[in-house]
Write a protein that binds this DNA or RNA. Structure first.
Length: 118
DNA sequence: GTATTGACTTCAT
DNA sequence: AATGAAGCCAATA
């Protein structure tokens, strides 16, 4: 079981399957921190490298990469996404295609006894 | 204490 | 589609 906000956010992101993506706000909600989308972005950067956090799978609610188009980080994120089969165009992906829908088991792995209200 | 700053979101133009 | 304002909340100055 996790014990602090950082861990909850990290663990939630770690559940996102390869080839899927999730929004910052969505991660916040799943981590039990509704309304804290901005905190998710902050906390991702604090994750220890050993976690191998799949940070590239977290995008804005619109499907847009949070970094400015063509910036170093945006390019890196797009590359990582393409490596796992996600099509990135104009600094964004199609949410309707790739958005992560957690299964009950995945929610359970996050420590929920009942699904959170989305 | 107030002000500013974000890997954000939503709504209205 | 693109742009802007307002809302958001924790961290920082």
């Amino acid at each position: 079981m996790t014990h602090n906000k950082h861990d909850r956010i990290w663990n939630t992101i770690a559940q996102i399957p390869e080839g899927n993506i999730a929004g910052y706000g969505h991660i916040a909600t799943l981590a039990g921190l509704p309304g804290r989308a901005r905190m998710v972005g902050k906390v991702i950067g604090l994750a220890p490298k050993e976690l191998q956090l799949p940070w590239q799978r977290v995008l804005r609610s619109s499907g847009e990469i949070a970094f400015t188009a063509h910036s170093t980080m945006a390019n890196k994120q797009a590359q990582l996404l393409r490596q796992e089969g996600v099509m990135v165009e104009n600094n964004r992906v199609r949410m309707s295609i790739y958005q992560w829908q957690p299964t009950l088991e995945e929610l359970f792995a996050l420590g929920y006894e009942e699904p959170p209200v989305i």
